[in-house]
Design a protein around this nucleic acid. Structure first.
Lengths: 346, 346
DNA sequence: CTGAAAGCGCTTACAG
DNA sequence: CTGAAAGCGCTTACAG
């Protein structure tokens, strides 16, 4: 039962003041003009007594915790856990740790989470924002707490952010499907007002329009986050009816795609011959689906690093102008959208 | 720039002492005998001034942070991110938050991580331990900090833990392969001294022995965590040579399996006809591999919940006897080990 | 070169 | 029913 020792313990042990100990422990001996000999003795005692600084006390004094609050939709979603890992590593380089939380795309949970993290005095936030969480985020800004949005953002908010050009990504993917001969291209999206989702849908619709494909209502389905599983299956089942005859689908996220791919595999519909597919994000499912899935790959590593960089910059310079870091997603073409394998007479 | 308000602000605003405010804010008005009217006024002022407690100050006073340090190998591994999510939710129910870190299966990183988390005064740890981290963990115990090991543990340490019966799981999987006619069953494992890995290998070897299959050295390959990708591919390539003729493989983890499955898919070897497969853990890859992969599924949810429960119990009763919570994994049989599809004349 | 003292935002035993 | 005061473990301006 080795007791933790405090500065006071070291001071008492050596019969000196805590002031001195503090200076040495924090390597401020030069500025404070602590004698070499004293510094040596203190360091030795610290080692001997197994001193570990109490960062809580330090934080109370300094007002900084060197902690970043990370808010994502669901840490068990590979997209977010990959980002979390990058952020963990990158923040660590600057001496910051991450406290994370999942909001399940719910504004209420997000509010609770942000409150908890704020009470814990995190120095800054990196947030993949939930729908309708603008006010919470503005609240943080009003309280002068740095916030960087990642993946999603609100165009109405003047705030640091890292994002991809979702419109372009969806447009290009749709265009690819159309140019290779698909004429009934559908899109499966989440029913959320979030800007990034709207941009993806807009890119899809504009691509249809620009290629003279008249859009039909049934081709675009918005489904709820909480019942995604059932609704994705239902949608696929509807779309694959001969009377509807969808011949290509753009999936707006990996979770939507994965659920649908399960249905597609089970239903026996041939990909890409009968149905071409392109999906956002990444998933091991994409690699292992019998027809490897073309995807819109976000530069996760760059995004995570940029988010941490923006946080650090903002902490150092609270009044600097907002940074909006846009990146391009990569359209990775594989077999699932290879329309040379198209079934002509269908 | 809404300033955060402190207890002192509320006290000053109302012209009362912080003592009173503290009692009310913490709902101790009854015990402290605060007047109804005063309590009402304080609550109102707290709301009005947008009071948010400073948990850091609270922690310094109380010596508790209501924080659990979660150490895993890699938060971006779906097995660990799934556990993290469970732990996050479950700990939240008890008012605890989680600070996480990845140790990349390295004892050095683990030591650094544990130090950082300890400096941050986490109340307890849940750790998926890295090889050779016994001493660090004993150090925590010596400092009287509750630790619960999850997934892996050290038989030499008397410590709370949650684990599955790895021996049984591997034994049964191997037995299944043998009973359905496979005679050259290999196993791919991580080259680590960790007990859970040794148990898995032991289960495999004992199953071979009990079914009178003489084990051959080449059938068991231990590969390094950091070069798993290359070594897994190399191993598969070796095993699939006609001269070696492995007809079944047990994979000791999901990452090992996923890398190997990529190679197998590319190489054109038929599963399960030519090669039967069973793999530990879960992965979307298992569902989408052309021959759905039989797996040894750990009860992740129960494990995560049990770990949090043990932590909470230990915090409440530091001297209670050690809890070792063992669970059974589930052998989920699918096509990849369906040996009725075995290629007889091979 | 070194130390006494104030203060970060809380809690709580104690006095009145 | 309410308040003054000490203290959690640090940091740092100030005095000597």
């Amino acid at each position: 039962m080795k007791k933790k020792s405090s500065l006071k313990d070291i001071a008492a042990y050596l019969g000196v003041s805590t002031t001195l100990v503090s200076y040495v422990i924090n390597n401020k001996e030069k500025e404070a003009g602590v004698s070499k000999e004293m510094a040596r003795k203190i360091r030795q005692a610290a080692k001997q007594l197994n001193y570990q600084p109490n960062l809580i006390a330090k934080s109370l004094k300094s007002g900084r915790t060197n902690t970043i609050g990370l808010v994502v939709a669901d840490i068990s979603n590979p997209f977010f856990s990959a980002i979390a890992r990058i952020i963990e590593d990158e923040a660590g380089k600057y001496g910051y740790a991450a406290i994370f939380g999942s909001n399940d795309e719910s504004a209420e949970k997000s509010a609770t989470l942000i409150n908890v993290l704020q009470s814990r005095q995190v120095d800054a936030f990196i947030i993949a924002a939930a729908e309708k969480s603008e006010e919470q985020i503005q609240g943080l800004q009003a309280a002068n707490i740095p916030v960087v949005l990642i993946d999603r953002y609100f165009p109405s908010l003047d705030i640091d952010r890292v994002f991809i050009d979702n419109y372009q990504a969806a447009y290009k993917a749709t265009q690819h499907l159309i140019r290779s001969g698909r004429t009934r291209v559908a899109m499966l999206a989440y029913d959320t007002g979030l800007y990034h989702m709207e941009e993806r849908v807009k890119g899809y619709r504009d691509a249809l329009r620009d290629h003279n494909l008249s859009f039909r209502k049934t081709w675009l389905r918005w489904i709820g986050y909480r019942q995604a599983k059932n609704e994705a299956r239902q949608t696929m089942s509807d779309w694959l009816k001969p009377s509807v005859g969808i011949d290509a689908v753009l999936f707006a996220t990996n979770t939507l795609a994965v659920e649908s791919l399960k249905y597609i595999a089970a239903s026996g519909v041939r990909v890409p011959e009968r149905l071409a597919i392109i999906a956002f994000d990444e998933s091991e499912a994409y690699d292992f689906f019998y027809s490897p899935v073309s995807s819109i790959r976000q530069p996760i590593e760059e995004m995570g690093k940029a988010a941490v960089r923006l946080v650090i910059e903002r902490l150092g310079q609270p009044d600097k102008p907002t940074s909006a870091v846009g990146m391009d997603a990569l359209l990775v073409l594989r077999e699932s959208s290879d329309c040379s394998l198209m079934k002509k007479n269908d």
